[in-house]
Write a protein that binds this DNA or RNA. Structure first.
Lengths: 338, 338
DNA sequence: AAAATCTGCGCAAGCGTTTGCATAAACCGT
DNA sequence: ACGGTTTATGCAAACGCTTGCGCAGATTTT
């Protein structure tokens, strides 16, 4: 019997009383179980509709052991690529009836309570995009059998990941700069030990070498605006100045351009600057940055695919996907004459 | 009896078997119920610790009717203020054992499935920061008795909100510009009908009037970079050009500055530009924008306070809090001589 | 010394679902 | 007319936790 508690939302039991059938029939009808006859199913659906019934995710999770919640861990917001990724992730996840729950969004170490949340809410999986935090998070997920996919980051030993093809992207940059007649290329590196940084750098270096060019200098930029800004002074005080600067991500390129302009350097007349990521600001007038666009939508979809499969079939072998980027030519770098 | 199912996490029952007490005693001990004797409590805590026990949030939510999840709805990420707000929110919520779940993060209308999520997961409350979506969301929350707090936005009729004191902030800007000797102030408006935009504009207008100044022009900027960029041409082609431009948020100020520079205008020599929000980019070298900093941390805490109270005591009267902003003087605007 | 209070704990119901198994009615071929 | 399959539904257990109530035994009050 439905208890008809004052202000409570309707449950399967409310519907079952209304329809004169058992709760199991209601449950099955609502989930389109073929065993329930069509007319009953429709009758039940109509009642549910009329009552404004919504299933109770917690109760369902309790029995199915699936919550539909995916944890999200990222490093600092200082790189605008990550908010962009998160927005895409939330939207794409919604289309698969998955919800994203951000567990951690700062540069601080992963707090114990964030990890507890992952377990307490019985999340179905986890997506992580931070270079610094990935090892710790990977261990925790593995220990608790929570499927994990790293995005924009490849795992040290094993684990799933989807990433832009950073090496190929770096090559595109290197080739583009060489074709543009640049002879003295400098590279600004990002987070030390991050695969994204080193792969992009390696790709660019190789393409440069193929064009008979040595990399003039490699300096640290720490994947921050300030790091790029300071790198400008460092590079411009070199005995031999670069004629092209590849910052391995856009955020450093913005700092670099601002730093150079502060020194009176003209872009791209005196030096070309290129980045990697194609965040929103890259197309802003102040920068109009030549960069490699990461296929964020595809990356997110692929990551959710991987997660989905491992939620369904735990223990599936790890997998790594590299998706190609797209060179966006803008005005921050000299191009080859057409 | 504990079933000791293969790979399952320990539950209260596992612990109760181990400790030789009932599950209710375990539950109470873990929640520090004073009725349980100290030594038992410690013994149980020790076992829980040893087993790596973590309570199951869904099961708890089922009976307590509290999930600890707070929904988050925002408009487009194009204004970097919102990612910044979200990061703060996630961190501050964590300190109160609350989790944030982003339901919607794009400019599109609120989808039905996002609303469903709010109800299915039985969220304890909702925080919304989008001007466009707030009416719809407010209706839904009210209909379902979900506490709602609007941040950076005041409600049309009733409801909770916490916002920067936009009017006072606008006044600070207006007074600052007047003191700096500016005579022809233009204002770039944001999202039409948004309270943030109109209040900031009103504050600035009033302060200007107090200094004997009329506002030269008011133009639309739509709260986007591109809107600010285009507004630059509009303002600069006016018969009488402004000597100060107040963009009601930073993102438009960036577009404005880039647009002006494209026209060869020098900042602040030819015209001063000021913004509102103090997002990260405002302190970047390219802009170094004079603006009003919103007290994001305090705003978030206050919003969570409001939510907390209404979760505990449903039906509490609506409340609106205005928190003061802080003028950040940088180099994008001429100051009064010292 | 009997009655009242307190202390510490267990029983069992309940939260809203799903799902394995049982059951009853209808259908099939013979 | 009968055993066997199919079809549509119900029963009840289970998921893991919280909590009202009850019940001993120890302690205090009259």
């Amino acid at each position: 019997m439905a208890r008809e508690q004052a202000g409570r939302r309707p449950t399967v039991e409310t519907i079952s009383a209304e329809a004169g059938v058992s709760v199991s029939t209601v449950s099955r009808a609502l989930r389109n179980d073929p065993r329930i006859s069509a007319e009953r199913r429709e009758a039940i659906a109509a009642i549910a509709q009329r009552l404004g019934y919504t299933p109770h995710a917690n109760a369902r999770a309790l029995v199915t052991r699936r919550t539909g919640i995916v944890g999200f861990v990222t490093g600092s917001r200082s790189n605008p690529f990550y908010p962009q990724l998160l927005e895409t992730l939330v939207e794409r996840a919604r289309l698969r009836a998955l919800r994203i729950m951000p567990l951690h969004m700062s540069r601080d170490p992963l707090s114990e309570s964030s990890i507890q949340a992952l377990l307490q809410y019985q999340m179905d999986g986890c997506i992580i995009t931070s270079a610094e935090l990935s090892s710790r998070a990977a261990d925790i997920c593995q220990a608790n059998e929570v499927p994990l996919v790293m995005v924009n980051r490849v795992p040290r030993l094993h684990g799933c990941a989807v990433s832009c093809n950073n090496f190929a992207g770096g090559e595109m940059i290197g080739a583009f700069l060489a074709a543009g007649g640049h002879r003295r290329i400098a590279i600004v590196l990002g987070t030390p030990n991050a695969s994204t940084s080193s792969e992009r750098e390696a790709g660019a270096s190789q393409a440069a070498a193929r064009a008979g060019l040595e990399i003039l200098a490699r300096v640290a930029g720490h994947s921050t605006y300030a790091g790029g800004f300071e790198a400008a002074s460092v590079l411009w005080s070199l005995p031999e100045r670069p004629d092209a600067i590849f910052c391995v991500n856009d955020i450093m390129a913005f700092g670099m351009m601002d730093g150079l302009r502060r020194l009176g350097v003209r872009i791209p007349e005196d030096v070309s600057v290129v980045g990697f990521d194609d965040v929103d600001q890259a197309s802003w007038g102040a920068y109009d940055l030549t960069t490699v666009a990461q296929p964020v939508g595809d990356m997110v979809d692929r990551a959710l695919d991987m997660l989905d499969m491992r939620i369904r079939r735990p223990g599936l072998a790890p997998e790594i996907a590299y998706l190609g980027g797209l060179l966006k030519v803008r005005s921050s770098a000299r191009s080859a004459p057409a």
